[in-house]
């Protein structure tokens, strides 16, 4: 078993409390007693290996992972710029259990950010996303999320798209559940899915709601493409956004009509 595997998922601390106290007093591991510096470097190497493995880069190495976390975390080279050490120690207040393990937990959070930055800088191709490549688990691309303003019209007038969106929304609204209506209302009216009102109206958590809303918008998009298979992609993007907006307005009416006490914007 390699060392990194032994230390994932909890267990005892790899370091000693005195290592952390010596490191807090010193500027960096380089200036600590040799035993402390070695202990911190060993711990840093294990956490670094765990991070890159989770990110799918198991073979990736760096000369000194501990140095990576120190340089990422310091805001500048002065003592004030290293106040993240105060944060690490404050984080252990009120915690029960192994004190050194608590500090290690905080450093693991710092290492995660440091490795993210390391991969961001060292592996730029990761950040090349093509315009039409679906993002994440969804079916929408960068071009959908940020449409070209000129694309949005094509030869079709704005008014025509509005009319078409209203007609399509009229049909689609009939098949929407109450939860779908709440989500459409919330998203188009600046209300978070994490808002207690939304939770109360749907009786579902926000993770479920996000997944459901993705399905709703994808279903609207699919229906529009089926109805207008030859239409220009830019027009379809605009039509989708306007149709969702229309559905949001209709949802508001359905959900709140006859309730004048509700202050609607």
């Amino acid at each position: 078993m390699v060392e990194e595997d032994k230390n994932d998922g909890g267990g005892g601390a790899m370091t000693r409390a005195e290592d952390w106290r010596a490191w807090k007093k010193a500027c960096a591991a380089d200036l600590c007693p040799a035993e402390t510096a070695a202990s911190l470097r060993r711990f840093g190497a294990v956490r670094f290996a765990g991070c890159v493995r989770r990110a799918g880069y198991a073979s990736l190495t760096t000369r000194d992972p501990w140095h990576l976390v120190e340089t990422y975390s310091q805001v500048n080279r002065t003592r004030a710029g290293k106040r993240y050490k105060d944060w690490l120690f404050a984080r252990t207040e009120g915690m029960v259990g192994d004190w050194a393990a608590c500090v290690e937990g905080g450093v693991s959070l710092l290492m995660r950010s440091a490795v993210r930055e390391f991969l961001r800088c060292e592996h730029a191709p990761l950040f090349m996303v093509s315009l039409d490549q679906p993002i994440g688990n969804g079916s929408f691309s960068l071009a959908d999320l940020l449409p070209e303003p000129a694309d949005r019209r094509g030869d079709v007038e704005d008014g025509e798209i509005e009319t078409l969106a209203a007609r399509m929304a009229d049909t689609m609204a009939l098949s929407l559940s109450r939860t779908d209506l709440v989500l459409l209302w919330a998203r188009t009216h600046g209300i978070s899915f994490a808002d207690p009102k939304v939770a109360k109206m749907t009786r579902q958590g926000k993770t479920m709601l996000y997944a459901r809303f993705q399905e709703v918008v994808e279903s609207v998009s699919r229906t529009l493409r089926e109805e207008l298979p030859r239409e220009d992609a830019g027009v379809m993007r605009d039509l989708l956004m306007k149709t969702v907006m229309q559905l949001g307005v209709m949802a508001r009416t359905k959900l709140f009509s006859g309730k004048p006490a509700l202050s609607l914007l």
Binding site: G136, G138, L145, L146, P147, R187, S192, F213, V217, M241
Partner: peptide, 8 residues
């Protein structure tokens, strides 16, 4: 601007 944007 997109209703299903992951940034929400």
């Amino acid at each position: 601007v997109h209703p299903a944007d992951p940034r929400y």
